[in-house]
Every structure is written in C-alpha cells, then in structure tokens.
Design a protein around this nucleic acid. Structure first.
Lengths: 106, 106
DNA sequence: AGTATATATCAATATAGATTGATATAACTA
DNA sequence: TAGTTATATCAATCTATATTGATATATACT
C-alpha cells in the first residue's frame, strides 16, 4: 500500500499538528463567533461579551486563547483593550487545512 | 454597535452550528489523518488501522463518526468495507468555514 | 484619595468525547 | 460445519477543556 504524504513526511506531520491545534481552537462556538465578529473590524471586550451574551471573564479567557495562538492581536485604548483578527495567520491556517482535505489539483 | 451577520441572521446561525459540528469532527488527529488518507483514494479498514497504527475498533468508531456526518462513504467488497472521502461534502463545509473567517472580498 | 469601569487571572467544577477491552456479526475458505 | 479474517458495537474509564464564581489589576473621573 502506497503511503499517503500526510502521515509519513516529517514536515507534513508538523503541519498536521499545527492544523489540529488550529482546529481545536476554532471548533468552539463562542470562539468562532468572536473571530467572525472581529473579522469585520476592531472590537473591545465589552462589545464582545455584550454582543455574544456571555460572561466577561469567559470572553477574556477565549480571547487569550485566540491571541496566544496568534489568531488575533490587541492594542490598548484607555481602559479598553481593542482586539482585531490577524487575517494573514488565519488565512495561512485555512490554507494548510485545505491541504489535508482537498485532493491535489482541485 | 453594528451587529455582525454571523451572530444575528437565523440562516447564518444555522450555518455556524453546522460549521462547529464539522470542525469538532475533523479537529481530531486520527480523524484528520483518516480523511487525508481517503482523499487520495478508497481504502479498507485494515489498510487504515495498519497504516495509522491504531486499534481496529477505534478506527471503526472514527469511521462511523465521519460517515454519520456524511464526510465519507462506504461500499462492501466481500469481507472488506471500502471507504472513500465525500469530496463534495467536505468542500462545502470548508467553504462555509471560510465564510466565518475570511472578510468579504478576500 | 476614593469610586467606577474595563479587563484579566485563578481555582474548582462540570462535561464531552477519545480510548480501551471485550465481544458480536458477517463473509469467505477448507 | 468449523475455522479464519474483517468489521462493528458496547460499556467503562480516562482526559482535556469549557464554564463558573471570586478576585485582582489597571485606567479614568470627581
């Protein structure tokens, strides 16, 4: 049986690990909603928790997860902290994902 | 604050639920490996568990999850069961995912 | 300085789901 | 029919992580 590249090559295996990490992070309703909200512009934490109707500390926690993995960035503005999607990083990860799902030439 | 479509519209909310289900299913190393293996051709269960070095019953279980969600199909061939990726379904789900992550016009 | 608002952190609990071991079913072969 | 191979199912356990409640920090305002 011919071995598939996704499971043999070291580089591809590393890519797989990264893709799984990425997927585990975004496969969570609250976090995907946050990303979707941020993809169209900068928002502070209070915007987010009021809009998504979830506790402030939980939003902060999810934002930390997203930021730690480089999917969003932040900047301070007075007492507020404004978050933005890191479009380039997200795009790179989705491209990597497609690599594992879509056959060559599609 | 202008509400983002991903969280307001009923249709989009339904899409979000489906996308989350899809992501939860593929955000699992063994399952993504299986999909990656199947994306380049049909394989029986014994191919898969031998190739991915995991117990047969676990492979069967993951295959069931993937099939129940329509990401793969199967056909019998004697004692063997051959599985294939359902390319169209996978592509549809990845498109839906991009909708939640990539800003309009990108 | 004292109060209010915005955000972050931490420990504890709850919960979903991956994995394992044992066993069942189904088809082919001698 | 008995034995062998391929696959599926079930119950039990293990593990990761989302959520909650309480609290800390940091900035702005009077």
């Amino acid at each position: 049986m011919k071995k598939a590249p996704c499971c043999t090559h070291k580089k591809t295996n590393k890519d797989l690990t990264h893709t799984i990490e990425f997927l585990k992070i975004i496969s969570q309703e609250q976090r995907l909603k946050i990303l979707c909200l941020l993809k169209n512009g900068e928002h502070c934490v209070c915007d987010i928790w009021q809009h998504l109707d979830m506790p402030q500390n939980l939003v902060s926690h999810h934002l930390k997860v997203l930021k730690d993995y480089g999917l969003i960035t932040s900047r301070k503005d007075g007492t507020k902290v404004l978050y933005t999607i890191h479009e380039k990083a997200v795009t790179q990860h989705t491209h990597l994902l497609n690599h594992f799902l879509i056959p060559y030439g599609n």
